[in-house]
Design a protein around this nucleic acid. Sequence first.
DNA 1: CAGAAAAATGTAAGCGCTTTCCTTGACAAT
DNA 2: ATTGTCAAGGAAAGCGCTTACATTTTTCTG
Lengths: 332, 332
Amino acid sequence: MASSATIYDVSRLSGVSTATVSRTFSDPDRVKEATRRKVYDAAAVLNYSPNAIARAMARQCTDKIAYIICKKGATILDEFYASICEGIMRSANRADLHLLVSTAEDWGQLLRSAHSKQIEGVILGGTADPALISEFQSRKIPVVLVNNRITGSELPCVVADEASGVRQALEHLIDRGHRQIGMVAGRVNSYVMSERYHAFVDCLKEHGLPVSPASIKMCEATVQSTTAAAEELLRSPEARPTALFCINDVAAAGAYKAARRLGLRIPEDLAVSGFDDSTLCPMLEPELTSVHIDCRRMGELCVERLTQLLQHKKDIEQFSMVPTELIVRRST
Amino acid sequence: MASSATIYDVSRLSGVSTATVSRTFSDPDRVKEATRRKVYDAAAVLNYSPNAIARAMARQCTDKIAYIICKKGATILDEFYASICEGIMRSANRADLHLLVSTAEDWGQLLRSAHSKQIEGVILGGTADPALISEFQSRKIPVVLVNNRITGSELPCVVADEASGVRQALEHLIDRGHRQIGMVAGRVNSYVMSERYHAFVDCLKEHGLPVSPASIKMCEATVQSTTAAAEELLRSPEARPTALFCINDVAAAGAYKAARRLGLRIPEDLAVSGFDDSTLCPMLEPELTSVHIDCRRMGELCVERLTQLLQHKKDIEQFSMVPTELIVRRST
DNA sequence: CAGAAAAATGTAAGCGCTTTCCTTGACAAT
DNA sequence: ATTGTCAAGGAAAGCGCTTACATTTTTCTG
């Protein structure tokens, strides 16, 4: 590491005290225009920029936050959480926060390092274990939830407007004349899945359409399971669904595979709609209609909330919801 | 932030000096067994763990590294770089390094923050601008390249054995009796693409198969372009290829779309092989044969190299290559 | 068992910044 | 002229740790 200029060098060169230099950088309005200029000039000559470590040391605050992805499966960076991560990264960079990205795999490790690395706030993505959450709370580390909501708790959370997304997709299908709409559902073991599931049921009911258990198939979130689930729905002895609402794009890919195996053409024989509008959508043939979620925005909101929490702001918006939008493609 | 115990508290409680406490934590062998025990006990009582910031301050080294993804396109966290990132994250956590993830979008910003945040080493993913590299070098910040290689430079780099991957895929196709093998190629503007391209040409030649410009179609890395490219190849007036080697899985998805539009069945009328073995493979119907790359391992190797560089080790392996493996599925 | 070498521990000076007082001087009000 | 106010800037005490150097304890050797 090149030994760079310190505040003393700048102080000497500009002829003011270190205190003034410090103030010039952290609160420019506290010093006179002329002084400020001198300081900036000296800093420019010396190629000085404040040492973040020393600053953290003196201020007793590290500006470090962590994004912890809580997902059962092995695959950490799935597209959805990665996009949120992107939003978080941007905002964090902009706000000069250090971001630590991690998974909730090894807790002990996680907490220990959160402690020694002086993490000041965390964003928990997905279905976080309540015990993990209270662990943070007992350490007085602010928590923001993303893609999750714990009713009855005061934790700020940011989620997408799942219900509206489901509604848009469903009404689109209904508009197209579909009456028998099946659902390839995930296990209802997370906030998101549960929202989508209930919105589906509610919406169909509102429109006076049949919601039989036989038209909803729960399964794991893998292509294998969703393919099997879709196949079962499509082989249904009673009225075969003419449209399949899939809980996410992976499930939709499963539906495609099932359809193909059964010789059904999409969209002629079967309409399929997905959810998340992932990069997968344009890769399928025909391109998949899906519900777009602005994950970046969600990430940004997380950082916003966390920042407010860290500054002990009052009246923090406890529940933030980003809108969703149906992207119609050729599968419906 | 809960005000936690300091080294002084531990010193007092355990009855030894702060120096000894410090040594106990950073180099346990330097203190006597008995003393060590006392210190650990006291630390446990106080729930003490060394403050990373203060440590960095005193040691004059921050243990901070950055992973910078250099990719033209907007989409930052594509699966490939994300997997590498995962490997880097793990190793970094294990080695107690702080990791900053960023894109090479805003250089000025990047360099400025690399400076003030005291980044001590960087991993550059993808095709990094030479100017960026020399910027780091002039600042004496060690650089490791991943998925890239700059011939003639001394920079350590870690890449996958692309040539062998290509060879495996191609020989698999040849084994299956294919003689007319087309290629959906990306622009040859990056190390990886160029490796794959040349390996393709070389391998076909070796096997005495025809390599006409007409059987290789270059295009952008989007599904749209690859679809168009594949379609063109398949409409080729001369001998239509019976197999398509696609430079990555996205290109393979393009090939699928093209095939479907032309009414060709996979694998009966057309074999398709991809590259990267992304999550996309099992989602396509039929599932896509592809070349697997152990991205995690690549990430780990990056951190290993960087660590060695930071410790001024001699004889650092300058060129690391991880093996590739063909995963045969139903598309061939 | 003396004395030297080696091992273990202690002392205290920073690391580069922030921030709490303080001092100074300019200006308005009395 | 005197006092009070306030903006601007300075002096210096840390923040929690590491480490060079000094000192003490232990171990080893003849």
